[in-house]
Design a protein around this nucleic acid. Structure first.
Ligand code: SF4
Ligand code: SF4
Lengths: 143, 143
DNA sequence: TTAAATTAAGACAAGAAAGTCTGAATAGCA
DNA sequence: TGCTATTCAGACTTTCTTGTCTTAATTTAA
C-alpha cells in the first residue's frame, strides 16, 4: 500500500519534478523519463496524458516531441499535482476512517489530526516543483 | 482509497475503540459489533481473529462468547492497533514515493515530512483507546 | 512523400485489497 | 447427551489499483 497518495500520484510528483529540472520549453520523451525514474512506460504515459488534460503539462507528438511544464516551475506546487491526480479529499478525511467528521462531537484526536492535515497541506502548497527538482540532482539520479 | 491506513486497519481501530467502551472482562460478539459499527460481518471476524493472534484481544467461543480487550483500555494505544494490522512502515516512507530516503541528500520537503510523520506517531502513541472510546458515546453511535 | 519517432486512446491483464461464504471446532445449557 | 451460539480457518469472489499491449494520429526529417 502506498502512503497518503496513490502510486499514480507519487509517479506524477516524480515526473513533474524531473521535468522541472529541464530548461523551460524543452520537451522530454516518456522514454527518457521512464529510464531515469524507473516508472513503467505505459503507465507513465497515461499519467502524463492526464496531466496534459489537467493543463499542468504540454505535449507534442512526433520526433523530438515529448512533455514539458505548461507553466514556470516556480509556479507549480506539489499540491497542484496531487490535486490533479488524487484530488483533495485527503484534507478532510478521518484518520480512523469514521464516516463523518461532524465536528460537533469531536473525539480526542480530532484536533490533532486536523492540525496535521493542515500542515501537510501547507507543505504541499509551499513547495514548488522547481525546489523539488533539486532532488533529481542527487547522485543516484544523474546520467 | 483510504488515507494513511488500510481499510482493515481503520476497522480495527474502530472495533477496539468500541470494545474499550465495555467494562473490563465483558465480551462482545461480532454480531453486536457489526451492528453498531456497520463493518461487514465476516471481514470484521477476520480482523478480530488477527488481533487475537497479535495478543491485543481475547476471545471465547460458544454462547455468551465474543471478544474483549486483552489488557486495560488505558494501556492500549492507537499505535498498538495500527502496528498490529498495518505495521509501522508508514513511519519511514517518502511522501513522494521515492525509493530511498537516504538522508544524505535530502530534498526540500524531507525535513518537513519527517516532522509530520513523527507527529503522527506521537499522536498514535499518546492516544489510548479508553480515550478514543468516548467517540462511541456520540449520539449517532448510541443504541 | 515516405519512414521513423513520438504522443493519444482505450481495451486488456495481473495483482492487491476488500468482502463473502462454508464448514469445523468449541463452549454453554437444557 | 445433544442443541445452539459463537469463534476459527481458509477458500473463494468481487472490486479497485496498477501495469501492459495494440492501434491510431501526429510531427519531423530524410
Ligand atoms: S471526531 Fe475523531 S474519530 Fe471522529 S471523525 Fe473526527 S478525527 Fe475521526
Ligand atoms: S529526500 Fe525528500 S523526496 Fe527524497 S526520499 Fe526524502 S522526503 Fe522523499
Amino acid at each position: 500500500m502506498s502512503i497518503l497518495f496513490s502510486r499514480e500520484c507519487e509517479y506524477a510528483l516524480q515526473a513533474v519534478s524531473y521535468l522541472a529540472l529541464k530548461p523551460a520549453g524543452e520537451l522530454t520523451s516518456i522514454k527518457d523519463l521512464t529510464k531515469k525514474l524507473r516508472i513503467p512506460y505505459h503507465f507513465l504515459a497515461k499519467i502524463l496524458q492526464r496531466l496534459v488534460g489537467k493543463g499542468l503539462l504540454i505535449s507534442q507528438k512526433g520526433p523530438s516531441g515529448g512533455f514539458g511544464l505548461a507553466a514556470p516551475a516556480e509556479s507549480i506546487t506539489l499540491f497542484h499535482v496531487v490535486d490533479a491526480v488524487d484530488g483533495s479529499d485527503f484534507l478532510h478525511r478521518c484518520v480512523m476512517g469514521f464516516p463523518e467528521c461532524s465536528g460537533k462531537h469531536p473525539c480526542a484526536v480530532h484536533g490533532t489530526w486536523g492540525d496535521l492535515r493542515e500542515k501537510v497541506y501547507q507543505m504541499l502548497v509551499n513547495q514548488n516543483v522547481a525546489q523539488t527538482a533539486q532532488e533529481m540532482r542527487k547522485p543516484e539520479y544523474r546520467d
